[in-house]
């Protein structure tokens, strides 16, 4: 089941029971604040006092930290090495033999790392705690066209099927003795001829899939109803509105702070 759900991880937590739009607003706030607020350390404050406590409440602290870490660490290493060392004309901060970390480069790396952290972390926190179908249902209630929610949820769900198909093809090639190894050109020659048949065979399905949803009234005019109801505590709409205001406020504050400095 986890496979067709994308990242979602079921936990008995208060956060999981929240309305999807509340969680969307929270992660949207982190994202916007993290990307707009000036200063090297502001994103780290958001992570420590916002994201991590929320992950703890979602009973997903370790999950979030390890997943975020796996994605973010290579970036951080790259950014510290490249921008820290190769910052042209910077003030040397630490010297290790012939190379030196420049102050400006390190500051840039710290700021970038913080942004990477908050972007990846808040996205992952949202995806880990929110079922895609419920998110779409919530958005549909707010007027998102049903065709858009069809697009997003069915994409998430059919991707594993197509990946499996790609793997089958890859395995079949391997078992036929076609090496997916050797030089770049050998590998390209082994794989590229598989791409077109994979795509063509996938496209064959499109027509039948279109008929199948037409039969079930996908384009039926008039209002649609929904089988599921999403629970929402009385205070949640207020929190959502507050977060939207906070986003606007943060944006203005960031602009002012940048103009002043």
């Amino acid at each position: 089941m986890a496979e067709v759900f994308g990242l979602y991880k079921q936990r008995a937590s208060f956060i999981h029971g929240l309305h999807p739009l509340t969680k969307l607003a929270v992660s949207g706030f982190f994202l916007l604040a993290g990307l707009s607020l000036p200063g090297m350390w502001s994103t780290y404050l958001l992570v420590i006092f916002g994201l991590l406590p929320l992950a703890f409440l979602s009973r997903l602290l370790l999950e979030l930290v390890s997943r975020t870490g796996r994605i973010v660490l290579p970036f951080m290493i790259s950014v510290f090495l490249i921008q820290g060392i190769l910052w042209s004309g910077g003030t040397p901060l630490i010297e290790v033999g012939p190379i030196s970390f420049k102050q400006e480069g390190v500051q840039f790396a710290i700021a970038s790392s913080g942004r990477i952290l908050i972007v990846v972390g808040s996205f992952l926190w949202f995806a880990l705690t929110t079922r895609p179908d419920q998110l779409m249902l919530a958005l549909a209630e707010r007027g998102l066209p049903s065709s858009l929610s069809y697009l997003i949820v069915s994409s998430i769900q059919i991707v594993p099927r197509f990946q499996a198909r790609a793997n089958t093809i890859l395995d079949a090639q391997r078992s036929r003795g076609l090496e997916i190894a050797g030089s770049i050109f050998q590998r390209a020659r082994a794989v590229l001829p598989l791409v077109a048949p994979l795509i063509l065979s996938s496209l064959i399905d499109v027509e039948e899939r279109a008929l199948a949803i037409e039969v079930r009234g996908f384009n039926y005019p008039g209002p649609k109803t929904s089988y599921r109801e999403i629970a929402q505590a009385a205070w949640e709409p207020m929190l959502q509105r507050f977060l939207l205001l906070a986003m606007a406020g943060t944006l203005i504050l960031s602009i002012v702070l940048r103009l002043v400095s």
């Binding site: 065709s147 991707v159 099927r161 197509f162 990946q163 890859l170 390209a188 794989v191 996938s202 499109v206």
Partner: peptide, 29 residues
């Protein structure tokens, strides 16, 4: 955006991801 296009898009996205991962797995740059 006809129905067939709306159905094509998720399949196209799946193609993006499946082919992208195939190329990545074969270590083609």
């Amino acid at each position: 955006f006809t129905t067939i296009t709306i159905v094509l898009i998720p399949v196209a996205i799946a193609i993006n991801i499946a082919v992208g991962q195939l190329i990545y797995a074969a270590k083609i740059p």
